[in-house]
Amino acid sequence: MSAATATHNPLRPPKGPAPFFTITTAFNAVGWLVLALVVWFLVIPAVRFGNWAEFKNVDNLLFLWKGLQVTLFVGAVSVVLSTIFGFLLALGRLSNFKPLRLLSSGYIEFVRALPSYLIIFFVFLGFPKLGINLSAPWFAILGLTMYTTAVMAEIFRAGILSVDKGQLEAAYALGLQPRDTIIHIVLPQAVRKMVPAIVGQLITLTKDTSLASVIALQELSAAGKQLFNLYSGIVLETIFVIAAVYFVICFTLSLLSKKLEVKDLTRA
């Protein structure tokens, strides 16, 4: 017992070669084995026996491309509109005018508590009964903007509030007007902190555009569904192709968000 504790000092690594077999080696070996099995039994059969012939047909690819164009259009317009309205709503929630503050926070909390699917559906069913008739893309844009505006407002508000209170006090002490304080002191610092959250919401928005297929908008996922209903036996293949398109868009955005993330504001 005493001899064992004397020789086994945890602060001093044992002499001699590293042990050939450790528990870590076992974990790694099992991991590679599972990966090999997955590749052998799932990935290779999927590539070999999948019916990929329809995707060499240019007409089908053009059909999907048209859907992708609609997706990109709806997403881009929604993100621009919701950024503008979200910023205004955030300022409304931070203002000193109480009715405006209550109205803004009421809208934000109400909309954020509802599924975006429900909001798109609400716009699509409710607005025509009020006499507002738009084309399907604009209904989708309206619904997505209504939802994303509320989320964007929260992001902007959190960003503005994250600016240190001392910065405001210093600006006021130097005699800056409140408006100048916001434009020159608060926003430049807030925007840097908000960028990852905004890009994250952009990813969510891109994914949410697929919901517009339920209101008969001919976007990417709806185009895919029509394609696999048209040809028999390419259901999984089509879904994988569409998923890959969405993945490329969203993963690029998430890499961008990681790159833009500011860890240390003093050094940025």
């Binding site: 990813i203 891109t206 994914k207 949410d208 555009t209 697929s210 919901l211 297929s213 996922s221 895919g224 569904k225 696999f228 259901v235 999984l236 879904i239 994988f240 569409i242 998923a243 969405y246 993945f247 969203c250 993963f251 998430s254």
Partner: peptide, 16 residues
Amino acid sequence: FRNTPLLIQVMCFFYG
């Protein structure tokens, strides 16, 4: 799974 829409995944399991 994080970077593809839920609707596509639902379609994948339901139709696929």
